[in-house]
């Protein structure tokens, strides 16, 4: 019973829309404009990228060990702490008290962090000291110039 309610609440995720409408119809009567439904049309990157506003954080990358995953030095990463960290997720982990970006590898009941320094090289297992999951990376923003 409680569970059912819980699940429906999870669905209510308010989107923090920051875009502004391009135009709004001032007339309430008459036929709906064919543009109705499209007129709130300024594209809002937050709405596109962020599923859980309260749980989402931006971080900046320093280093090249995740280039194989498309994550470069200086990139912005969007981190969603509401998502579960699964096998293969790119995550932010707490290692030695610092924040690190790695791929999570769950194998034979063990969890390990791996780097992806290049696209084709073997993965490297990071020092398997204890770590905690800080959040799950959902997007990387990379400037191409």
């Amino acid at each position: 019973m409680l569970n059912a309610v819980w699940v429906s609440w999870v669905g209510v995720s308010p989107s923090v829309a920051l875009g502004q409408p391009l135009l709004r119809s001032g007339v309430a009567a008459g036929f709906p404009s064919p543009a109705e439904g499209y007129q709130w049309g300024s594209l809002d990157l937050n709405q596109h990228l962020i599923q859980h506003p309260a749980a989402s954080f931006w971080v900046r990358v320093q280093g090249d060990s995740m280039v194989g995953a498309g994550i470069h030095d200086g990139d912005l990463l969007l981190v969603d702490r509401a998502l579960p960290a699964e096998h293969g997720s790119v995550i932010i982990a707490v290692v030695d008290g610092g924040l690190t970006v790695k791929r999570l590898w769950k194998r034979l009941g063990k969890m390990q962090l791996v780097s992806e320094p290049t696209t084709h090289s073997p993965w490297e297992v990071s020092s398997d000291a204890t770590f905690e999951v800080w959040g799950v990376v959902t997007h990387a923003i990379h400037a191409v110039r």
């Binding site: 320093q62 924040l99 090289s121």
Partner: peptide, 19 residues
């Protein structure tokens, strides 16, 4: 002022895994 996350390669002594 965003938090910085490190993407550093593990020490060379670590044995690479086959993909």
């Amino acid at each position: 002022q965003l938090p910085v996350v490190l993407a550093e390669s593990p020490p060379q002594s670590k044995r690479p895994y086959a993909q």
